[in-house]
Simulated scan of single mutants.
Amino acid sequence: MMEDSFVLPGDTVGSLEEFVPGDYTYAREGMIFATTAGLVKVDPKTRSASVIPKTNAPVKLNHGDIVVGEVIDLKDSLVIVSLAFKKGYEDRPISDEEATIHISNVKNSYVKDLRSLFSMRDILKAKIVDERQMRLSTGDEDLGVIKAYCNRCLTGLMRKEGKLICPNCGNNETRKMSSAYGLGVV
């Protein structure tokens, strides 16, 4: 198989005499086969043959990944988040995946009331701490709310001297803000 050739699952990528199987490939009976649709890539240093996926397959979420989502519900000890995408894969949305942030994973200090740190419709950045139960953490300084809306008039809140102020009605609110609040996903 030529490098940069487009392959489908099950297509031959190379032989085990020439290469070792790389990402998105598997070996059987002396040959290397593709596990996904994509382009064949050969690494001359490791002599590995891989496939670079070219499909809209769902993004795999792993422990330590940074994700962005919207707060859709608040309980006494949980924030429920509808995940939008994984950082680095902004063009491949996550569909129908919900995750939770337990009150113990919000900050590196005691949290008495989640409603003082999060609100419905907040957009936040969090780290996956348990990919099987989809538990998230916002404990790091760069994690937390990156966009918030006024609870009175639904206008986007502006960060001013460490506080969130509504430019429309003047309402002051608090959140567990990311150090990148208002800068988008960085």
Rank of each mutant, 00 (worst) to 15 (best):
V68E: 01
Y110I: 12
G69V: 03
K75G: 12
R132A: 05
G64Y: 07
M177I: 15
P21S: 06
E173F: 10
A57Y: 05
S15P: 10
N172Y: 15
S82R: 14
F19Y: 15
C153Q: 01
K176C: 11
L8I: 07
K45F: 08
I146L: 09
G170Q: 05
S77W: 01
E70L: 04
E18R: 10
A27W: 05
T174C: 08
C166G: 01
T36P: 00
V67H: 11
V67E: 12
V20D: 08
V67M: 14
G30Q: 06
N56D: 15
M134K: 13
P53V: 03
M120Q: 04
F33Y: 15
E17G: 00
S95T: 14
K87L: 14
L164N: 09
L136R: 09
A84W: 08
V185G: 01
K176S: 13
L8H: 09
I103S: 10
V59E: 01
D96P: 00
V71R: 02
L83G: 02
E3Y: 03
F85D: 02
S119V: 03
F118D: 06
L183F: 12
I103D: 07
G170I: 08
D130M: 03
V186R: 12
K75T: 14
H63N: 12
K54H: 11
F85S: 05
G38M: 08
F33C: 02
D43Q: 01
K127T: 07
M1A: 12
A126G: 04
D23N: 12
R159C: 06
I66A: 09
M177C: 15
I123T: 09
T12I: 15
S109Q: 14
Y181I: 11
G170Y: 09
I146P: 07
T138R: 10
G14S: 08
F6C: 03
L61Q: 09
T55P: 00
C166D: 02
S119E: 10
N172E: 13
A99W: 07
L124I: 13
K127I: 09
L154I: 05
V7S: 07
V111G: 08
L124W: 01
F19G: 03
L124P: 05
A34Y: 10
L154E: 15
K60H: 09
D91P: 00
P58V: 00
M158T: 15
L154G: 00
R175L: 05
G22E: 05
P21V: 10
H63V: 13
R132N: 08
R135S: 03
L124D: 04
S77V: 14
V40A: 01
A57P: 00
N168W: 02
R132Q: 08
P44T: 03
G14E: 06
E18M: 10
V51D: 06
S15L: 13
V20M: 10
G38V: 04
T12F: 09
V71F: 04
F118G: 00
E131Y: 10
Y89D: 09
A84F: 05
K54I: 03
E173C: 07
V81A: 12
S109A: 13
S48E: 14
